[in-house]
Design a protein around this nucleic acid. Structure first.
Lengths: 212, 212
DNA sequence: ACCTGAACACCGTTCAAGT
DNA sequence: ACCTGAACACCGTTCAAGT
């Protein structure tokens, strides 16, 4: 209504007791903060609504359910991861070195943002149900595929399909990130820094595909 | 009441409508079934109690909280994984081949028991808080370490500490298992069978550490 | 169109009380 | 010692009703 319009426009003064403009964005922001604070496990739709200043039922005007709000968080995670990877890739002109640096940047980002990472690869929702999430995830993955393709093109690595190398490589990198976040490496007595470990492992792994 | 008592004593001779004997075991069994049916996410302490035929408060006589019951499930998972790995190891006398077969068996077990696997590596509880879990996990991991140590001893692989190879190797194998279960590999267009992928990847990885 | 309020069917957990 | 019953403080979700 007219009243609401005004309120929204001077939000700097009036705030949002009346939840005007983009509650959707406010909820996503609140969800992001909550996941960062308490992890994806402690994230609650009700509390996200509370922080956004609306009733517990309000979110259902913008998200079909809790999982969809969590998917929005995960999507933001993939976007940020993608940015971290792009930056790392641009900083490493040499194609093979770039692949290694992508691995390092991936693990670094994951370890520094464990809650995001868990929301991206946890089981609270099924990616398949959230197309935007698949797109964002695919974009992040493409950094790796492109770098490997460069290696193949320039003859630094041998192989046909870059995916044949990208699969194992992603598995390795995700495995390190995942086990590091879970504390599992430490639990079995591996105290090596995860970044160092992934650099060592990817370097060795890539050595195999080198031309003779 | 008296009625219930009678029921307890017969139901196949003795049974446990009266829940006496080992409710702890009954709860663990119920939890196992629930996790297998609905995944660790859908697992509920209340329903585990319901299936065991007791009130929602009863479990607290045997477990401090929900996480501890889930830890019992995860521990059982590690025990079964350990058995699968031991069997695979014994079937492969050649040391290097044994390492590869351990990777294959690991991924196979994980893909065939995704709910167990998720309860073992999910975030519903912190392993650190459950010593038995660390022990069981360590035992499973030792299969890999021992096999790698055999390779070093027999000179099939070069290196100092088996953990230096076991770390990347576990990361790789866990990464494949984890991404396969989550459907992430398929999502980015990698349709290769996870077992085949892990065999290929570990074989290549081990080739690097071969003596010249 | 967007939000509230009240309601429903659940949870995990605690605690007095029973046997 | 082990379990129940009732209670508490939450959830996610739905739906009529307000503006």
């Amino acid at each position: 209504m007219a009243d609401e319009r005004t309120r929204a426009q001077k939000s700097a003064r009036r705030r949002s007791t009346y939840h005007h403009g983009d509650l959707k964005r406010a909820l996503t922001q609140a969800a992001l903060a909550l996941v960062a604070e308490k992890g994806p496990k402690g994230f609650t739709l009700t509390e996200a609504a509370r922080r956004a200043g609306v009733s517990a039922a309000a979110p259902y005007r913008h998200f079909t359910d809790k999982a969809q709000l969590l998917a929005a968080v995960a999507e933001e995670g993939f976007i940020q991861l993608n940015e971290a990877l792009s930056a790392a890739g641009e900083g490493s002109p040499d194609p093979k070195n770039r692949v290694i640096e992508l691995g390092r940047a991936y693990v670094r980002w994951a370890v520094n943002h464990p809650d995001y990472y868990l929301s991206m690869f946890g089981t609270e929702m099924v990616k398949r149900d959230h197309p935007d999430l698949l797109v964002a995830g695919g974009r992040a993955f493409d950094n790796l595929v492109d770098a490997i393709a460069s290696c193949l093109d320039s003859g630094v690595l041998e192989g046909q399909d870059p995916l044949e190398i990208a699969g194992p490589m992603w598995s390795l990198v995700h495995g390190v990130a995942s086990l590091a976040i879970g504390g599992d490496l430490c639990d079995v007595g591996i105290d090596e820094d995860p970044e160092a470990l992934v650099v060592r492992a990817t370097t060795e792994f890539l050595a195999v595909a080198e031309p003779a």
